[in-house]
């Protein structure tokens, strides 16, 4: 479903993503793991068509993201990092706007908004403006936006960031459920999350894939069978000086 080949993204002399290749099929939940600034968000921004890649190729459902972006973007639901939303809109207005841009009209749009609201438990804040929402609700509003057109591909950048433990649990459950029929790629730096929700893990460090496999396979690499030991062994802490790789914010 998603095919990524030799993906490179350079910001000036800095290589934020350096030769990343992988593919994901329907029914898989792929976890992107990595320290801050490893290139997780940049990779996701390229897959969703926000950043054009410096080189390499991305196809989503057979559509090339660079050559045929509209067809590729239609298949994707995307939750960007920090869950942005139009501050002055109500949750209801915002979801309707997103549904309309997804080409949903009339009754189909009403049903889609209703379904997304139910999935993300937004009934209580439906007519509240987004800038008055708590972080958890704001996050779920943006998540609802990504689900509104029932996409085949879900790309979620830190979907549980800023949620309380109950909400985290719910979102993980949701990701797992959705992953049965869709392709889900999500990034995180919380290791338990990976074990709880992923069928496959890719660990990225300084723009490169340093490990990939099922959570069980990765755990087997450590003598005690702990994922965080594997993680620490193969990624460098960002306090270590390295010359080219820094968090890149554009």
């Amino acid at each position: 479903m998603i095919n990524v080949e030799h993906l490179v993204k350079a910001f000036g002399p800095k290589l934020a993503v350096n030769d990343v290749s992988f593919s994901v099929e329907r029914g898989e939940v792929l976890g992107f793991l990595g320290p801050n600034g490893a290139g997780k968000s940049t990779t996701m921004r390229m897959i969703t068509g926000y950043y054009p890649p410096t080189s390499g190729r991305i196809t989503v459902g057979g559509h090339d993201m660079v050559e045929n972006p509209i067809a590729a973007k239609r298949l994707i639901g995307y939750l960007p990092e920090n869950a942005p939303g139009y501050a002055d809109m109500t949750v209801h207005g915002f979801l309707n706007f997103c549904a309309e841009l997804r080409g949903l009209q009339g009754d189909a749009r009403k049903r889609a908004v209703h379904r997304a609201v139910e999935l993300c438990f937004l009934e209580n804040v439906l007519y509240q403006s987004i800038d008055t929402l708590s972080k958890g609700y704001k996050h779920r509003t943006c998540l609802a936006q990504s689900l509104i057109h029932d996409p085949d591909v879900l790309i979620l950048d830190e979907p549980t960031d800023g949620l309380d433990p109950n909400q985290k649990h719910e979102v993980r459950g949701l990701i797992k459920r959705l992953g049965e029929s869709k392709v889900v790629i999500f990034s995180t730096h919380i290791l338990e999350e990976v074990e709880a929700a992923c069928s496959r893990v890719i660990i990225i460090d300084r723009g490169r894939i340093v490990a990939s496999g099922t959570p069980a396979e990765l755990k087997a690499r450590s003598p005690e069978g702990k994922l965080d030991e594997v993680f620490r062994a193969i990624t460098l802490p960002d306090t270590v000086k390295h010359d080219v790789h820094h968090e890149v914010h554009a």
Binding site: I76, P80, P84, L101, G103
Partner: peptide
């Protein structure tokens, strides 16, 4: 500033 540009431009719009 809000980051909604990322949202808007990853929608199926040119």
């Amino acid at each position: 500033r809000l980051g909604t540009m990322e949202l808007l431009l990853t929608m199926p719009v040119t």
